[in-house]
């Protein structure tokens, strides 16, 4: 059974259809890259998988581990192992990062019927993950993402990814706003998780990110559909020839 199956997905925002029948299958341990120009519907796909309100699914389905993902609330999806690394992680003033991590982790464990993590265990785990990602303890005491740089916000996303141990990670434009060093640190964090057999869907506009997170499969999206799929070479091909060639195909 595939881990994630998106079948003929049609999605509207207000009156406008954004996805016109998109299909995608991801198996355990696979890394898929979804590339496409701005406005092709990449972020919409990530939002719909995570359950962001404001999108109307008018057709198709999404199965996760064989279950109907669309019937679940966003927090149920998280507990099942769906993790969305946000393109623009929000700032939450007044909620300390540490409190947030612990509340979220225990909410997920509770939803799965697992016992809460003891404070020492939790602290030990956060500290070791934080250290590997170069995240200072001081950052964890601040409000979630409050006053964080772009790189720090992305590292905080990877920290959560490592902590919550999801089955699939959707990385939405993880490279946006990052310089090369920040990108490398974040990508190293992702690669460490990948080696543990986790599936990834890497959404990106540029090929650059895929130098660091090398995909097994590449899909090209245009105008709300997947117009071409292939191996990692497809990304390089795109880098040279651009997206223009796919615009007509989608129409």
């Amino acid at each position: 059974m595939p881990l994630l199956e998106v079948k003929n997905l049609q999605v509207r925002v207000e009156e406008r259809e954004i996805l016109h029948g998109l299909s995608l299958t991801v198996n355990e341990g696979e890394v898929h890259a979804i590339m496409g120009p701005n406005g092709s519907g990449k972020s919409t796909l990530s939002h719909v998988i995570a359950g962001k309100p404001g999108y109307e699914v008018t057709g198709g389905e999404i199965l996760f581990k064989g279950e109907d993902l669309l019937a679940m609330s966003p927090d149920e999806r998280a507990a099942k192992g769906v993790f969305l690394a946000f393109q623009y992680p929000v700032e939450i003033p007044g909620v300390a990062t540490m409190t947030f991590l612990r509340t979220a982790l225990n909410a997920q464990r509770k939803a799965r019927g697992e016992p809460e993590l003891s404070t020492p265990d939790f602290l030990k785990k956060v500290r070791s993950v934080a250290a590997s990602l170069n995240i200072p303890q001081e950052m964890l005491r601040r409000g979630v993402n409050v006053g964080f740089s772009g790189g720090e916000k992305k590292r905080n996303e990877v920290l959560q990814m490592a902590l919550f141990e999801p089955s699939i990670c959707i990385l939405d434009e993880m490279d946006s706003g990052l310089d090369i060093d920040a990108l490398r640190i974040a990508a190293d964090g992702v690669n460490a998780l990948r080696s543990q057999g986790r599936a990834m869907v890497v959404i990106t506009h540029y090929q650059r990110l895929l130098n660091y997170i090398v995909p097994d499969y590449v899909h090209v999206m245009s105008k709300g559909r997947v117009v071409k799929s292939g191996g990692k070479d497809l990304a390089l091909e795109l880098e040279e020839s651009g997206y223009a060639q796919f615009e007509d195909q989608a129409a």
Partner: peptide, 10 residues
């Protein structure tokens, strides 16, 4: 949404 995507019920 961010909090719910991280597993917190509404």
């Amino acid at each position: 949404f961010y909090l719910r995507a991280r597993g917190l019920p509404e």
